[in-house]
Design a protein around this nucleic acid. Structure first.
Lengths: 218, 218
DNA sequence: TAGATTGTTAATCGATTAACAATC
DNA sequence: TAGATTGTTAATCGATTAACAATC
């Protein structure tokens, strides 16, 4: 499936699947820090995440030597390193496109902050929605999309429009400078190779699980 | 990462990664059918999905011989087969747990129907929300969770509660008979091996993409 | 020191791709 | 028939795991 879009992690020798696990490590480590723990081991982290300690050590060793034999990893230090590797030190300003129920939920979700992202703009084409306030932001008309992205230098967007509008809106965002899209539209988007797309598709996830579920309780 | 939860597809020789692609095939084929197409080839399908024709043929051949040399696949027939394989012929009644912005968005999303699922119950613990109507459903008190799941024989649930409540609610759902959970809580859930969990985590997806995005436009 | 745990190598396991005979 | 495309095999590629020397 390459990785969902035309995007291929070119210039790098680092497996994309490894990059994709770093956010999970970061999240687990952040919880540990909140619990007041100072150090952890690949084994403990592996138990939390349901994966092998070998995999965690191998993944981390792709980026450097962050641990100490006999001791394990200093949590605060490792968090800092992972944030740096993932380029989360400066906040990414993200556009939410589509202000329906889902766009509304995303805009009101406060879990982006402190994890590297801030929803900074919301767009919709519906005159009823334009001007509405959501979590401190005012819904902008879709016509402002390109100008705003260009002026503000926004690089990341979350797509929450109906499938029928998704490709057209994507083309406009990409032309304006968006380079990473998290799409909630149930459709495979076509983008240039330098643009990343990742998908969230509840129906796909449920269908995947349905395969294994016995309809009657065993 | 095994596959995210303790769940491991036991009794089966079919790779989970293959099962996970079937919903994508099904979705693309459904669009093709709506466009009025009658047949397709592994090549055409592969182009739509950004994957190789060989992979599609190999995946499908895991479950049977659905195509014809020289002609390709009859779309309607293949859709029927995939729906059957994925056990989507009867509608799955799904519980949404948590009636915040996200639970609201999920309950109002009409994309579940016609794809094998129906949101049938919504639960929340907030007295302010209990009794509220959402897309024809009335928000039930969390106290009714176990009784409803048991009485109705519900097997699938969508978890849209805060991280702090997620594990406790999960334990209750599992005890009551839930066997597949789509979780929006940013936490790794612990479940028995016979329960599946899949996660939707926008922050994780954005962090994954951030690794590859140049902050300045190249 | 002794025990614990890293980083790394080599072995294993699994997934993807290329190629082609079969056949519609 | 000739062209197209499947299903499948074998080769390739990539990811995970086991094991252990190094060392804190």
């Amino acid at each position: 499936m390459s990785n969902g879009s035309g995007f291929s992690p070119v210039h790098n020798t680092i497996p994309d699947i490894v990059v994709g696990r770093l956010p999970l490590y970061l999240r687990a480590l952040t919880y540990m820090a909140e619990e007041g723990k100072a150090t952890t081991s690949s084994q403990e982290l592996g138990e939390r995440l349901g994966m092998s300690s070998a995999q965690i050590r191998k993944d981390l060793s792709t980026f450097g030597e962050f641990g100490k034999q006999g001791t394990g990893y200093h949590i605060g230090y490792l968090i800092g390193q992972l944030r740096q590797i993932l380029k989360l030190d400066d906040e990414w300003r993200v556009a939410v496109v589509g202000a329906g129920f889902l766009g509304h939920a995303l805009t009101n979700y406060n879990g982006f902050r402190h994890r590297g992202f801030r929803i900074s703009w919301v767009f919709d084409s519906d005159p009823e929605k334009i001007g509405e306030e959501m979590n401190g932001l005012v819904v902008q008309p879709m016509g402002e999309l390109e100008a705003t992205i260009q002026r503000e230098g926004s690089r990341m967007a979350i797509l929450a429009v109906p499938a029928s509008a998704a490709q057209e809106v994507t083309d406009r965002m990409v032309a304006a400078g968006i380079r990473a899209i998290l799409s909630y539209a149930p459709i495979n988007l076509t983008v240039p190779p330098y643009v990343q797309v990742r998908y969230s598709a509840p129906v796909v996830e449920l269908q995947h699980m349905a395969f294994y579920v016995d309809k009657a309780l065993v």
